[in-house]
Simulated scan of single mutants.
Amino acid sequence: MRNCSASGDDWTCDRSSDRYRLTKGLCPAHYSQFNRGRPLARITRHRSTPGGYLPCAFDGCDRAVSARGLCKGHYDQWSAGRPLAPLRKKRDSASYQAMLRHGVVECLGCGESKPVSEYSLLNRGGAPRPYCKPCHAERVRLALYGVTRDFLDLLLRHQRGSCAICGVSEQETGRSLHIDHDHACCPGRGCCGACVRGLVCSNCNTYGLAWYEALPPELRTFDLLNGYLANPPAKQLRAGAPAQGG
């Protein structure tokens, strides 16, 4: 076991390799300081928290603060302009290898233990991804549109569980609602997250909005779509407006 090599005139970091991964002999917080060209400084302590370290300000995260009140993982999300989201859970290599030997792996997303065949491959070595196929697809979708699962759940509840335009529900169509965003802000499939407008069914997204927004402004006379485009559900949600139909 080795301790972090960071020290000062009146302090020495006592973080050890049995709890923290050391890089260049430094714990994650001090390596972050070193990597940014900052002088190594004492990590903030807090008497009321286990281990004496001030925890990350993100709700439910118990990792030590690295910068701006956030742990390194959440600070990286913030600095990249992404919505703060729970970090990937950690599991030790021994338990993971044991699961592989039995051919059943616990998904870090849904928490279910599933056969290895239910996971796509992470690399050429054949190692399965830490998330099952549905959970991995959902993570890719959320990252593509710059939103969190909590935000989409709130948005769907705001829309009374149905398409923001025609009112059809996911249960009726048997398919998930599409995430609609303003293509004037972010052309293409993905977006920054700030221009997400609402959740709509496949028909409204493909044959309604795509066709309607391609029309010249003088031909856009459909009040239902004009109302959606002028004040979409996501804008209402961010403004604290009551749920649709409420």
Results as ranks from 00 to 15, higher is better:
residue 98 A to R: 08
residue 85 A to D: 07
residue 195 C to F: 11
residue 174 G to K: 06
residue 114 K to Y: 04
residue 118 E to D: 14
residue 177 L to T: 02
residue 90 K to Y: 15
residue 197 R to D: 03
residue 119 Y to K: 03
residue 180 D to T: 02
residue 191 C to A: 11
residue 188 G to I: 01
residue 80 A to Y: 01
residue 154 L to V: 02
residue 116 V to K: 05
residue 154 L to K: 07
residue 154 L to M: 11
residue 204 C to D: 11
residue 118 E to I: 00
residue 200 V to M: 10
residue 157 R to K: 06
residue 185 C to G: 09
residue 167 G to C: 10
residue 163 C to N: 01
residue 94 A to Y: 08
residue 125 G to C: 13
residue 167 G to E: 02
residue 163 C to E: 00
residue 89 K to I: 12
residue 126 G to F: 03
residue 161 G to K: 01
residue 146 G to H: 02
residue 138 E to F: 13
residue 139 R to N: 11
residue 204 C to Q: 07
residue 152 L to M: 14
residue 199 L to M: 03
residue 82 R to M: 15
residue 182 D to M: 12
residue 203 N to C: 12
residue 136 H to Q: 08
residue 126 G to D: 05
residue 150 D to Q: 13
residue 119 Y to C: 09
residue 204 C to I: 08
residue 88 R to G: 15
residue 110 C to F: 11
residue 133 K to H: 10
residue 80 A to W: 05
residue 161 G to P: 04
residue 120 S to A: 12
residue 138 E to P: 00
residue 98 A to Y: 09
residue 189 R to G: 12
residue 97 Q to T: 14
residue 169 S to W: 04
residue 196 V to H: 03
residue 130 P to D: 06
residue 93 S to T: 11
residue 158 H to W: 10
residue 138 E to L: 15
residue 118 E to K: 07
residue 115 P to G: 04
residue 163 C to R: 00
residue 179 I to S: 01
residue 198 G to D: 01
residue 81 G to P: 08
residue 193 G to P: 05
residue 182 D to G: 10
residue 151 F to D: 03
residue 103 G to A: 06
residue 101 R to T: 13
residue 158 H to A: 01
residue 158 H to N: 04
residue 84 L to T: 02
residue 136 H to S: 11
residue 114 K to Q: 08
residue 171 Q to T: 14
residue 87 L to K: 14
residue 108 L to C: 11
residue 116 V to W: 03
residue 115 P to V: 13
residue 80 A to C: 11
residue 156 L to K: 05
residue 196 V to K: 02
residue 203 N to L: 11
residue 94 A to H: 10
residue 201 C to G: 01
residue 134 P to F: 04
residue 151 F to K: 03
residue 191 C to H: 03
residue 193 G to Y: 09
residue 104 V to L: 08
residue 117 S to C: 14
residue 136 H to D: 10
residue 126 G to A: 06
residue 107 C to R: 07
residue 167 G to R: 05
residue 139 R to G: 11
residue 128 P to F: 13
residue 142 L to H: 04
residue 121 L to I: 12
residue 165 I to S: 01
residue 125 G to V: 09
residue 117 S to P: 07
residue 165 I to W: 01
residue 196 V to L: 06
residue 189 R to A: 07
residue 195 C to Y: 06
residue 180 D to K: 01
residue 183 H to E: 14
residue 112 E to W: 15
residue 118 E to W: 09
residue 202 S to W: 11
residue 178 H to W: 01
residue 167 G to Y: 02
residue 94 A to K: 09
residue 194 A to G: 08
residue 138 E to R: 12
residue 123 N to D: 14
residue 198 G to V: 02
residue 145 Y to P: 01
residue 104 V to Q: 12
residue 196 V to D: 01
residue 184 A to K: 08
residue 139 R to C: 10
residue 157 R to T: 03
residue 119 Y to V: 06
residue 177 L to P: 02
residue 113 S to C: 15
residue 132 C to H: 07
residue 176 S to V: 00
residue 164 A to E: 04
residue 147 V to D: 00
residue 183 H to R: 14
residue 186 C to F: 00
residue 97 Q to A: 15
residue 83 P to K: 10
residue 115 P to D: 05
residue 132 C to S: 08
residue 138 E to V: 12
residue 178 H to R: 00
residue 80 A to L: 14
residue 195 C to I: 05
residue 139 R to M: 12
residue 160 R to P: 09
residue 163 C to A: 02
residue 203 N to M: 10
residue 131 Y to S: 13
residue 149 R to G: 10
residue 171 Q to P: 03
residue 119 Y to M: 06
residue 110 C to M: 07
